[in-house]
Nucleic acid binder design. Structure first.
Length: 199
DNA sequence: AAACGGATGGGCT
DNA sequence: GCCCATCCGTTTG
């Protein structure tokens, strides 16, 4: 598997959100390597009311305005963190939220981290996968491109052809109609199997 | 299979 | 106060 180059991320965000499907996210932790295939993403765009970056740069969302290929991590609902990848040109404030992974490596570590046994429940949501991979909020802003990075993204050449589906983003009220959620059609590890029935 | 509410805390009006 | 890019256990159809 080859690492994704910086040019992969320095592209329009919707394109990156789709291209990330099927790629493998690696986390090198003290206890071992944990990895999963990205099966669901959401794009957050410039002038997008649902995006944290909509009202401009603040201390909290500053990483969204940094260079492509970095991690943007935010704290939410008083107890969870979610992991995004910064995309596009610097200062546009765009990013891709990673919403679900198919566990590949370090599944026992994931089970410990999540205190859950069902493999389908380990990474089927943005806060779940953050916990499963043993990520920390201090990794906000870290580069995913450097060979020294604990967090890395890889191309999987063995992956069969996939079909990409799009749908409305989850859990937002503003700009709720935009179909900026992307997932691998038919994949068992997406966060919601019956997603398109609901508003 | 869907709906609901509690947990939990930082930031903003 | 109220909102929030969530999760989970419980209750209801």
């Amino acid at each position: 598997m080859k690492p994704l180059p910086k040019s992969f991320f320095d592209k329009p965000t919707v394109e990156v959100a789709k291209n990330l499907l099927g790629k493998v996210l690696f986390h090198r932790t003290a206890k071992g390597i944990i990895a999963g295939r990205i099966v669901e993403t959401e794009a957050y765009l410039h002038m997008d009311e649902a995006s944290h970056s909509f009202k401009g740069k603040t201390a909290l969302n500053a990483m969204m305005f940094d260079s492509p290929g970095r991690a943007y991590i935010y704290f939410t609902y008083g107890m969870y963190h979610c992991f995004n990848i910064v995309t596009n040109k610097k200062d546009t404030g765009e990013a891709v939220l990673i919403r679900a992974l198919e566990p590949i490596l370090g599944i026992d570590l994931m089970k410990k981290n999540r205190k859950k046994e069902n493999v389908k429940d380990l990474c089927s949501g943005p806060a779940k996968l953050f916990i499963a991979l043993g990520m920390k909020k201090e990794q906000n802003g870290s580069s995913l491109i450097s060979s020294k990075s604990e967090l890395r993204l890889m191309q999987d050449d063995t992956l069969k052809r996939i079909t990409i589906a799009s749908a409305k983003r989850i859990g937002i009220k503003k700009a709720a109609d935009k179909k900026l959620r992307f997932y691998i059609k038919g994949n068992e590890f997406v966060s919601r199997k019956y997603h398109d029935k609901k508003i």
